[in-house]
Amino acid sequence: MMSQIQLSANSFTTNPNIVKTKRSIRLYHDAARTKPAGTIKQNHWLKINHVVKKDGQIVALETNHQQYLTANQAFVVKSRGYQNPKRYYQVHYQQIKPEGQVGYTVKRGFEGIKTWYIMRKMGTFAGYDKYNQATYQAVKRFQRQHHLRATGNVNLMTWLKMGFTKHSWTSIDSYVAPLKATAWQGRQAHIEAMIHQAYRYLGNPYLVGSSSSPRYGTDCSGLVMQALYAGGIDPAPISAIHHAFPGNEWNSRNLWASKKLMHVAYRHRQRGDLVFYYQPGTHVIWHVAIYLGHNRVIESWPPKIMVQPIRNSQRSDIAGIARVFH
């Protein structure tokens, strides 16, 4: 028995969910496609709500913005959505979960926001949030005074006795910027998601080893990592959770060394690229910023997160440019 549905030649019969345009196509305000709503260029993505049928015949695809386009697969193809080439960091469309244990004990050499809180509580903070020997000794005295095991390390029990909350013990570690771009949006939307997250920290203090909520400050690579998460990029094993661990303040070096970022010539820099800097007089990476265009970057640099010229009197030795989205 022949199907009662009269299929248009080469048309989708079920909802493809996401399509990519094979050529420039028109969008319409109506399923009959008589009222033009604009044009979509080749190699763009669209989210499809459902296949529209009339009198048993497939007539159009309806987008999530209640616009309509041809269902003919000669013009649009089913797609998983925007994605980088396989050799580079893949774009995620589920909340990223960085590597590492949430609720870690803070010890000598640790940095980050927990250390910042502890040092202020112990009276040892002098502008640099690194768990030093003075902090270690102060914590041991505090633990003895409160009948705790005097390890000099801050575990959950010591943290609570200092007056901090159990929620903060884990929430500081576990914050991950929410995804702000979808599979049916293209490269520019992912770049803007990354930059938008970075701007949420604008004016916050520079805090070494920090990469958490916009309630707090960050360091340079900590800012970049949260921005990457918002765009759907997980630079594992580089992790916001591990960022406070000794040595991880130099995650700028690990990002620079990653083969999953494409390095491009300085003259080809584009909005959304990462700008890496050498320490003056050396070939050692010591800083990373996000390029905004027009020779401006957003960065975390003492004393705060700010927008600055790509070169200035504090750091101008550019090692190179790395592209995140392709």
Rank of each mutant, 00 (worst) to 15 (best):
residue 43 N to I: 10
residue 182 T to R: 05
residue 104 Y to A: 10
residue 81 G to T: 05
residue 149 R to E: 13
residue 281 G to P: 01
residue 46 L to D: 05
residue 266 Y to W: 11
residue 255 L to N: 01
residue 35 K to L: 15
residue 280 P to Q: 11
residue 290 I to D: 06
residue 74 A to K: 13
residue 189 A to N: 06
residue 190 H to L: 09
residue 255 L to F: 03
residue 305 I to S: 02
residue 36 P to L: 13
residue 249 E to F: 03
residue 110 F to V: 11
residue 224 V to T: 01
residue 94 Q to T: 15
residue 162 M to D: 05
residue 13 T to G: 12
residue 70 T to D: 07
residue 60 A to I: 07
residue 236 A to Y: 00
residue 188 Q to R: 04
residue 315 R to Y: 08
residue 69 L to W: 00
residue 153 N to I: 04
residue 296 R to H: 10
residue 252 S to V: 07
residue 136 Y to Q: 07
residue 8 S to Y: 10
residue 164 F to S: 12
residue 20 K to D: 07
residue 119 M to L: 14
residue 15 N to T: 10
residue 25 I to H: 01
residue 317 D to C: 06
residue 67 Q to C: 06
residue 326 H to Y: 11
residue 259 K to N: 12
residue 72 N to P: 02
residue 225 M to L: 15
residue 303 P to F: 12
residue 321 I to L: 06
residue 278 Y to M: 14
residue 22 K to N: 12
residue 238 I to A: 04
residue 205 P to M: 14
residue 126 A to H: 10
residue 151 T to K: 01
residue 220 C to F: 01
residue 269 R to G: 07
residue 309 P to L: 09
residue 37 A to E: 03
residue 100 G to I: 08
residue 244 A to D: 04
residue 9 A to D: 12
residue 19 V to H: 05
residue 257 A to R: 13
residue 52 V to R: 00
residue 113 I to N: 03
residue 148 L to C: 05
residue 67 Q to N: 09
residue 78 K to R: 12
residue 63 T to S: 13
residue 305 I to P: 00
residue 279 Q to A: 14
residue 101 Q to R: 07
residue 293 G to K: 07
residue 137 Q to I: 12
residue 282 T to Q: 09
residue 13 T to I: 13
residue 184 W to M: 09
residue 188 Q to T: 08
residue 18 I to A: 08
residue 85 P to T: 09
residue 161 K to T: 08
residue 154 V to K: 00
residue 173 D to N: 06
residue 168 S to H: 09
residue 113 I to T: 05
residue 322 A to T: 02
residue 199 Y to E: 13
residue 36 P to F: 10
residue 53 K to T: 15
residue 167 H to M: 11
residue 222 G to P: 00
residue 46 L to W: 04
residue 109 G to P: 02
residue 315 R to L: 14
residue 44 H to A: 13
residue 125 F to W: 12
residue 183 A to W: 04
residue 46 L to Q: 08
residue 233 I to G: 01
residue 55 D to K: 10
residue 53 K to Q: 11
residue 77 V to I: 14
residue 245 F to M: 14
residue 239 S to F: 03
residue 196 H to M: 12
residue 161 K to A: 09
residue 45 W to F: 15
residue 96 I to Q: 01
residue 193 A to I: 04
residue 246 P to E: 05
residue 33 R to S: 12
residue 69 L to H: 03
residue 125 F to T: 05
residue 55 D to S: 11
residue 34 T to P: 01
residue 74 A to P: 02
residue 286 W to A: 07
residue 57 Q to T: 11
residue 317 D to F: 02
residue 278 Y to E: 10
residue 242 H to A: 04
residue 324 V to H: 00
residue 223 L to N: 00
residue 308 Q to M: 14
residue 37 A to G: 01
residue 303 P to A: 11
residue 13 T to E: 14
residue 81 G to Q: 04
residue 296 R to D: 08
residue 160 L to P: 02
residue 147 H to A: 05
residue 152 G to N: 04
residue 121 K to S: 07
residue 44 H to P: 04
residue 245 F to G: 00
residue 33 R to K: 15
residue 74 A to T: 15
residue 196 H to E: 13
residue 321 I to M: 06
residue 247 G to S: 05
residue 307 V to I: 13
residue 38 G to H: 06
residue 190 H to D: 06
residue 239 S to K: 03
residue 202 L to S: 05
residue 31 A to T: 04
residue 40 I to Q: 02
residue 258 S to D: 11
residue 304 K to I: 12
residue 316 S to D: 13
residue 302 P to W: 08
residue 83 Q to C: 10
residue 221 S to F: 05
